[in-house]
Amino acid sequence: MNFHTRKWIKPEDLNPNETLFGGRLLEWIDEEAALYAIIQLENPRTVTKFMSEINFRSSAKKGDIIEIGLEVSNFGKTSLTLACEVRNKMTREVIISIDKIIMVSLDEEGHPSPHGKIETEYVKDRLAK
């Protein structure tokens, strides 16, 4: 799993229990998954279709630094399936895991569109071509 983004937990990210609000974390995960899929599929019209069960395994508190990790598990005809894990950067304790996030590539009319990708590519390799 590659961890791409780090977030610093600030007071505005907390719930009444003084721990990281789950909705805020899901917002960050959804944004990270979208950015990752857009770059992989080379299509800015890529959207979230599905998120499987979300497993909150621990919490984060103000001042913690967390990191969001994503890993490709499958390339579909119009989709990209990702797994996600968020952990505390300093302790490596897992905060949340999501087994399946499905992102779909859309055409200009908003319909699923084949992307032609079959494996993970890195921008640095595309630029070298």
Rank of each mutant, 00 (worst) to 15 (best):
L26C: 05
W28L: 04
W28N: 04
W28E: 10
W28P: 05
I29C: 03
D30T: 14
E31I: 11
E31P: 00
E31C: 06
E32T: 06
E32W: 08
A33I: 05
A34S: 12
A34E: 10
A34W: 07
A34H: 00
L35Q: 10
L35D: 12
A37F: 05
I38W: 05
I38R: 09
I38S: 00
I39A: 13
I39M: 12
I39K: 13
L41H: 00
E42T: 05
E42M: 06
N43G: 08
N43F: 02
P44K: 12
T46E: 05
V47T: 00
T48G: 15
T48W: 11
K49W: 12
K49I: 14
K49N: 15
F50R: 15
M51P: 09
S52W: 10
E53I: 13
E53S: 14
E53N: 15
E53V: 13
E53P: 10
N55G: 12
N55S: 09
N55F: 11
R57P: 02
R57W: 00
R57V: 09
S58P: 06
S58Y: 08
S59A: 14
A60Q: 09
A60D: 07
K61Y: 09
K61A: 15
K61Q: 09
K61W: 03
K62D: 11
G63H: 09
D64L: 10
I65F: 15
I65L: 12
I65S: 12
I66R: 03
I66Q: 02
E67K: 13
I68D: 02
G69R: 00
G69D: 07
G69H: 03
G69W: 06
L70H: 01
V72Y: 01
N74A: 15
N74C: 14
N74L: 13
F75T: 02
G76K: 03
G76A: 08
G76S: 03
G76H: 01
T78E: 00
S79H: 04
L80W: 02
L80F: 07
A83E: 03
A83S: 08
A83M: 08
A83H: 06
A83F: 08
A83W: 01
A83K: 10
A83P: 06
